[in-house]
């Protein structure tokens, strides 16, 4: 049963970790605009491929 002491303290450390992660997420504005977050994963198209296309069409 003495394991209980270790486990509970571990759970508290884990709790502190969770709170830290949450705070980090809030600070990096992930909760500010929930809709924008969906967009943030969209990457830009390959820059070069686009430029080459424009060049091709100009030629």
């Amino acid at each position: 049963m003495n394991m209980l002491f270790v486990l509970i303290i571990m759970s508290l450390v884990f709790l502190a970790g969770c709170i830290y992660v949450f705070f980090w997420a809030i600070r990096s504005k992930q909760f500010k605009e929930l809709e924008i977050q969906g967009f943030s994963v969209l990457e830009k198209d390959e820059y070069e491929s686009n430029e080459s296309i424009t060049k091709n069409t100009q030629e």
Binding site: L42, K44, D45, E46, Y47, N50, E51, T54
Partner: peptide, 12 residues
């Protein structure tokens, strides 16, 4: 928008 590589704007 296209030259900036942001055409995905139109899809979303």
């Amino acid at each position: 928008i296209a030259t900036a590589g942001l055409t995905e704007y139109y899809q979303h």
